[in-house]
Computed example of a mutant assay.
Amino acid sequence: MADIESARTIFEQFDIDGDGFVTAAELRQVLAEVGGTDVPEETAQALIDANDGNGDGLLSFEEFWAARQAARNS
C-alpha cells in the first residue's frame, strides 16, 4: 500500500495543474526544475507516448502506475 502512495506522490509532483494527467509540457518543466535538464518537447511527448495506454497523449496515474509496475517486474 505504501508503494502506491509513494507513486501517487511522485505523480502529483509531475501533474503541476492537478488535473489528473501529466502533459509533455509538465514533464519538461519538472525535469528542468529538478534535474536542470532541458528535454525537447518531442522527447517528453515520446516518453509519455511510450506509456500512454489509451493514446490520448497524456499520462494518467493509472498509466504511470502500470508503467512503474512493468519496470519493476522486468
Rank of each mutant, 00 (worst) to 15 (best):
G36T: 07
Q29V: 06
E26P: 00
E42P: 04
D56K: 03
I16W: 01
E41A: 13
G57W: 01
D49V: 04
T23K: 02
A50H: 10
G36E: 13
Q29M: 13
D38L: 15
D49T: 12
V30K: 06
E26C: 06
G35P: 02
D17W: 04
D19S: 08
V39Y: 00
A25P: 06
E42N: 09
L47N: 08
G35L: 13
A50L: 12
F21I: 04
D52W: 05
A32W: 11
G55E: 13
A50K: 11
F21W: 14
Q29H: 10
A44G: 05
E63H: 07
G57T: 06
I48F: 00
G55Y: 06
Q45S: 07
D15S: 00
A24V: 06
A46C: 06
T43Q: 15
F61K: 08
G53K: 05
L31C: 14
G36P: 01
A44K: 02
F61A: 03
A50P: 06
A46N: 11
D19F: 09
L58R: 11
F61P: 01
V22Y: 00
G35A: 11
A50T: 10
G35Y: 03
G18L: 08
V22I: 15
D17P: 02
V39T: 05
G35V: 04
V22H: 00
N51S: 12
V22C: 02
E42I: 08
A44R: 02
D19M: 08
A50M: 11
T43P: 00
V30G: 02
W65F: 12
D17E: 14
V22N: 01
D15C: 05
T37E: 15
V22D: 00
I48S: 00
D56I: 03
G18E: 10
G36V: 12
E41I: 09
G20D: 11
E41M: 13
D19P: 01
W65I: 14
E41S: 09
R28G: 06
G20M: 12
I16R: 12
F21E: 09
E26G: 01
I16K: 10
G18T: 07
A44W: 03
T23P: 01
L59I: 11
F21S: 10
S60D: 12
V39N: 00
D49A: 15
E26F: 02
